[in-house]
């Protein structure tokens, strides 16, 4: 496997270093060839920078990609926004040589050149496509049989699909496949693909942000979900922090929000403490308690059978 740099983005190191912890923990456990690279900046955040100065949005993203190009690495990110932004700019410049030339004329003065050689992948499709479910199953020590775990893709893991090509943009499968591999029972939710709505918090519309979070959390509560799994710091912020704020005001949901790397970490044998899961605002306790209290005999073989029937290994 080609060496890759983890693009941490701004939100994880700033607000959620514990998510960096679980991400590093699973990357190490799978002995993956990753390293930190000096020189990255904000990807930059699209809704913020692109709305004010689209040229600067492109320049900044192109420079980040150029850093990876110069280091000879691919890029993997645990943030959907970062991958989507970088990929959108990469695609735009790759298909518009004139624009790439203009961008490079500026980058040259900062000592960089955009070539767009680095592959850019989000962690979820990365695990699905490059590590593979077979390898995950080899390392798995505990499954999630009997646990109802809802999945939230995060818009920017899969859209815009012309730039990402990560999964079907309307009916994605990869995150679901990974959860199925871990033995989790899916939760049917009408609002499964609905945007988390965190963007509204960035434009001074907090009540609207809460409103969108509420719609999803209510549905999950009524479906009896034990947890919601996400893999984007923005979605995490929306469902963990904003749920916490609503609960403080008396509205109870009780849906623990689990990062994909935490769930995977638990499955391969790490403890919640080792994964720093006590840092969430909505407690993960109820989920962990129920999970540890299950009767786990015969689970593993049943999963193997179900997965084979579903053709997951043939992907």
């Amino acid at each position: 496997m080609k060496e890759f740099a983890v693009f941490w983005g701004c939100t994880i190191p700033t607000r959620f270093p514990f998510l960096e912890k679980s991400t590093r923990t699973v990357l190490d456990a799978f002995s993956l060839p990753y390293r930190d690279v000096d020189g990255f900046t904000c990807c930059p955040e699209k809704s913020l920078i692109n709305n004010i100065d689209p040229t600067l949005w492109k320049l900044t993203a192109a420079r980040n990609i150029a850093v990876a190009d110069d280091e000879g690495v691919d890029v993997v990110s645990p943030c959907t926004g970062c991958v989507s932004n970088l990929s959108t700019v990469k695609k735009g410049l790759k298909t518009n040589p004139k624009e790439a030339e203009e961008v490079n004329a500026v980058l040259k003065k900062a000592g960089r050149e955009f070539k767009g050689a680095a592959d850019l992948t989000h962690l979820v499709p990365f695990f699905h496509d490059k590590i593979g479910i077979r390898k995950i199953k080899d390392l798995m020590k505990k499954d999630f049989k009997g646990m109802k775990i809802a999945v939230h893709y995060g818009c920017h893991m899969i859209r815009p699909s012309h730039a990402l090509g990560a999964d079907d943009p309307i009916s994605p499968k990869k995150f679901d496949n990974l959860l199925a591999a871990l033995g989790a029972s899916p939760v049917k939710a009408r609002n499964k693909l609905m945007c988390c709505g965190q963007g509204l918090d960035r434009v001074n519309q907090h009540d609207n942000a809460l409103h969108l979070a509420r719609i999803k959390l209510r549905e999950l509560k009524s479906e009896g979900a034990d947890a919601l799994v996400v893999c984007c710091p923005s979605c995490f912020l929306q469902f963990d922090n904003n749920q916490f704020l609503m609960e403080k005001e008396g509205e109870k949901f009780g849906i623990p929000i689990i990062y994909f790397t935490e769930l995977l970490g638990l499955a391969i044998g790490f403890t919640p403490e080792e994964l720093a899961m006590n840092s969430h605002r909505v407690s993960v306790e109820p989920f962990i308690k129920k999970w540890e209290g299950r009767d786990t005999t015969e689970a593993s073989e049943a999963i193997e059978e179900e997965l084979s029937d579903a053709g997951v290994f043939g992907l």
Partner: peptide, 29 residues
């Protein structure tokens, strides 16, 4: 970027020192 790495929390979690940002190059750009 949109914030600095949370240093005390990193230390507590046993995370490595964060990579250097590209702020100087960004300013030149």
């Amino acid at each position: 970027r949109l914030g600095d790495p949370a240093m005390p929390a990193r230390k507590k979690l046993g995370l490595p020192a964060p990579a250097k940002s590209g702020v100087d190059e960004f300013a030149a750009m």
